[in-house]
């Protein structure tokens, strides 16, 4: 076990990321923050609309969209990738709805069948055309956030610019359509009676979700996107019930988990994206235990059964 954990080097883990390594770690942190914040903001609405698992489905099915777009256009251009992912995302939504509506298969099973099939198609395509596609299984699993060029090597890296613009786009969309999103997420019936087009809102959310999923895919891979979509929203949902505050808190969660995650990755010598998620899950765990309104410590204290209260509760 000892050889597994590298010796804890205070300078390497805590100080250097802010001094010597800053060009590299800065790019990682910025990218990580952009990804987690974007996903977290969109994820808030997925949580409220009970579409968390559509996030799971869309983030997986983006893969065949990417590969097919690449095979058709032959380039890895931003627009081709976005378009492919967008079509894949919308196709997932439509297929899930079709299976669910036309047969007696329940929605969860139809999600499960759809996204695994699409993802399998993607993986098979990647392995068949591995010589041509600039994607591999590792990239699918944990992204290539660690490979982002350092800041000082000739300007700002392109992925950073792309993700940053997606973040700005998402923030703008939420600001403009805040009222519509708010009403339609909490009470679709009321929203319709107020003249909000709920179908358009639904598909709009799904389209934004696909865009976010594809841009985050590059950095953190298909599966970890799910964590980034759900964790910030779930954490802030434990701490507040106001939507605006939830947004703020999920951005805070994103920033904290990114910084902690980068340190964790340095300390453990692991990949960065999973370490960010682990840090985020840790923060969620803290919120779960210590939330002022629904925290576990309230439950542990109330029954007042001696011996059952774990140490964290005191």
């Amino acid at each position: 076990m000892n050889e597994l954990l590298p010796a804890f080097d205070f300078h390497h883990v805590v100080v250097a990321p802010w001094t010597d390594y800053l060009p590299a770690t800065g790019a990682w942190m910025l990218m990580g923050f952009f990804v987690t914040a974007t996903c977290g903001l969109v994820g808030n609405y997925l949580m409220l609309r009970r579409m968390a698992l559509m996030g799971d489905a869309v983030s997986h099915s983006v893969l065949p969209g990417l590969v097919i777009a690449f095979l058709i256009t032959g380039t890895r251009g931003t627009w081709a990738m976005f378009l492919g992912a967008l079509l894949a995302g919308v196709a997932t939504t439509v297929i899930v709805e079709t299976i669910h509506r036309k047969t007696r298969v329940k929605q969860d099973a139809s999600i499960g069948v759809t996204f695994t099939t699409l993802f399998a198609i993607g993986v098979v395509l990647v392995s068949v055309y591995s010589s041509q596609v600039d994607l591999d299984a590792e990239c699918v699993l944990y992204g290539e956030i660690g490979n982002i060029a350092a800041l000082d090597e000739g300007g700002i890296p392109a992925p950073l610019v792309r993700m940053g613009s997606v973040l700005i786009g998402v923030v703008l969309l939420i600001t403009i359509f805040y009222k519509q999103l708010l009403v339609s997420s909490f009470d679709p019936g009321l929203a319709r009676s107020l003249g909000v087009n709920t179908t358009a809102t639904h598909y709009g959310t799904m389209i934004v979700l696909s865009i976010v999923a594809v841009s985050a895919f590059e950095a953190v891979g298909a599966i970890l996107v799910v964590a980034m979509l759900i964790l910030p929203g779930a954490t802030s949902g434990l701490l507040t019930t106001r939507l605006a505050r939830m947004h703020g808190l999920s951005v805070v969660h994103a920033a904290l988990s990114t910084v902690l995650g980068v340190h964790l990755a340095l300390a453990l010598g692991s990949q960065i994206a999973p370490a960010i998620v682990v840090a985020g899950a840790g923060l969620f765990g803290l919120a779960w235990v210590f939330s002022p309104t629904q925290g576990l410590w309230l439950r542990w204290r109330k029954p007042a059964k001696p011996g059952t209260a774990p140490a964290e509760a005191s």
């Binding site: 997925l46 968390a52 970890l224 799910v226 759900i230 929203g233 779930a234 994206a273 998620v277 899950a281």
Partner: peptide, 22 residues
């Protein structure tokens, strides 16, 4: 908590997976 089952599933799935990857 008030977290719905679908979100709980996604949360556990991805967090455990990330820990495993780490």
């Amino acid at each position: 908590t008030r977290i719905k089952e679908d979100a709980a599933l996604g949360l556990v799935l991805a967090s455990f997976f990330a820990a495993g990857l780490c």
